[in-house]
Design a protein around this nucleic acid. Structure first.
Length: 512
DNA sequence: CGGCCGACGGATATCCGTCGGCCGGTGCGATATT
């Protein structure tokens, strides 16, 4: 009888897809995930961005009894997703966050039993009052969106991510669905552990984006980089994103680009206020900008199908981050280009960031001693964090230390956790340094770029696109235009490009 | 890790080199103060 129920559910999934979302068929991967979810399994799904990850929990939301709880890393992402659901007429979708008026938050909690979808941050979810309300509610599905954040941020930057397993337990172990576009094997294991996934079904789609041509270009110094970038921007298709490691670089570059190319250029980073950020983001989405210089603050949840170029003015510290960032190009399947400029000095950024994530050993030791002597208190939290930052710790390092000391029982000495802290820091450092090494190896490798990361992800190289990478004969000069237009071997490239475009267009027609 | 800035000292009355220290990226929520 149970079996018949399940079959019924699966049939109804197709009906929901058509009636609510207006699609005839599930796309690759979606159907498998939905089946596993409806059958009550924990599921880990790695699907490329733009492949319709949200359908994977939205459709089950209509077939399971109770609330679908979606843990999301960004408030803007939650708002967007609620908005999307509203557009298809779903009224029982809400977000719960700190920007809301307390009254409104209360109202959402009061009618929680009538909701179908609730979007929430890991921080909010950890609040005892919120959790108490959720404990009285039936949670049908526990979704972790952008699940790579668990591993990428949970260990230092946003420690609340590491409490999701505990919260899941308090909610009575609802089935869990973790989705992301990029997670190498180590990250997958890390996520599975942090979320306490059991008997997990995995759907692993390729991380490769074959329509994005890859180029790594080594240059002497930053001024050469700026020159080359400006040339590149005036030759290739736009809009484009230029990723920088530091905020001041985004501003300086934007200025330079505007000056030398006249392109509509803006910058975006986490130091700007929320209104400006929204404004720039919307301008970019609406096609009012050609170039956006930004830090890694920009990108998550950005769904603009026609970004043609992603430049790395400095490279990120992990392969996952790199693939996330270049993956924002050409979601529509047309030809895109990713260019990474490299000088040896650029390494200082990622290695500096790794250093900043943790307190140094002197501070660690000193703080534990002072806590034991009563010269320092862990509470109130903000005072503790401020004191540490006053002594030169980064905000992340301070918060890391707070997470370590907050749970030390009264009868124990703080110094007793010294070795444990040292071990954690050492291990995390090794992991991050290894990630960085992989990224450096990618840059310095003299084999196919695509083959390199596919092997890192333990994927077999499926099909090699014609416009693959600089190692496979893709001419950087054809894009950058270092020579005069006449003597460039350009026309052939363009022809090839056109031919490919046509093919792609035909291909997508065929799919429909 | 390395670029950048300010301090400092030496040789000369303003400049020049060197050295040490600092800084650098992601966002949530809550709370107190203008």
């Amino acid at each position: 009888m149970e079996l018949r129920d399940e079959t019924q559910k699966l049939k109804r999934a197709h009906v929901i897809l058509k009636e609510k979302f207006g699609y005839e068929q599930f796309r690759a991967g979606q159907w498998q995930v939905i089946q596993d979810v409806l059958n009550g399994h924990d599921v880990f799904a790695m699907m490329p961005t733009g492949s319709g990850k949200s359908i994977c929990y939205e459709v089950p939301g209509y077939l399971m009894e109770g609330l679908v709880l979606i843990i999301s890393p960004l408030l803007s992402l939650m708002e967007d997703q609620v908005h999307q659901l509203r557009k298809i007429g779903e009224k029982q979708a809400r977000a719960l966050n700190g920007l809301m008026h307390p009254q409104e938050r209360k109202r959402v909690l009061q009618k929680i039993n009538t909701l179908r979808f609730l979007f929430i941050s890991p921080e909010m979810l950890r609040q005892p009052q919120i959790l108490a309300v959720l404990q009285r509610t039936k949670v049908s599905l526990f979704v972790v969106d952008e699940a790579h954040c668990v591993s990428q941020w949970g260990h230092d930057f946003r420690p609340d991510y590491l409490y999701l397993a505990q919260i899941k337990a308090k909610l009575g172990y609802p089935p869990c669905l973790a989705v992301t576009a990029t997670a190498d094997e180590r990250v997958r294991v890390d996520i599975a552990r942090a979320l306490d996934l059991r008997d997990v079904r995995q759907l692993l789609m390729s991380v490769d984006r074959s329509n994005i041509a890859l180029i790594v270009k080594k240059v002497m110094d930053n001024s050469e980089k700026v020159d080359q970038l400006i040339q590149l921007l005036s030759k290739v298709r736009l809009p484009g994103i230029v990723y920088c490691a530091a905020r001041d670089w985004t501003e300086r570059l934007a200025e330079q680009i505007r000056l030398h190319t006249g392109l509509r250029t803006a910058y975006y980073h986490g130091g700007m206020d929320a209104v400006d950020r929204r404004k720039i983001q919307n301008q970019f989405l609406d096609g009012e900008l050609d170039v956006l210089c930004c830090t890694n603050a920009f990108g998550m949840g950005i769904n603009k199908p026609d970004i043609r170029l992603v430049v790395h003015f400095q490279f990120p510290g992990t392969m996952n981050a790199y693939l996330q960032e270049i993956g924002r190009a050409s979601r529509d399947g047309k030809q895109g280009l990713a260019v990474l400029y490299y000088t040896e000095q650029d390494e200082r950024y990622p290695s500096g960031f790794i250093d900043m994530n943790f307190p140094d050993d002197t501070m660690l030791h000193q703080v534990l001693v002072e806590l034991d002597q009563g010269l320092l208190q862990t509470e109130p939290k903000d005072n503790f964090l401020e004191t540490l930052q006053g002594r030169g710790a980064s905000e992340t390092a301070a918060r890391f230390l707070y997470e370590q000391v907050r749970a030390v029982p009264r009868e124990k000495r703080f110094l007793s956790i010294l070795d444990e802290c040292r071990r954690i820091i050492r291990e995390r450092r090794i992991i991050q340094m290894n990630d960085l090494k992989v990224m450096k190896d990618y840059i310095n490798s003299n084999t196919c770029r695509r083959a390199f990361y596919q092997s890192f992800y333990k994927e077999k190289q499926q099909h090699k696109p014609k416009l693959c990478c600089d190692q496979c004969g893709l001419q950087f000069d054809a894009f950058s235009g270092e020579e005069s237009p006449e003597d460039r071997p350009h026309s052939e490239q363009i022809l090839e490009w056109r031919a490919r475009l046509t093919l792609l267009l035909k291909g997508s027609d065929h799919e429909k």
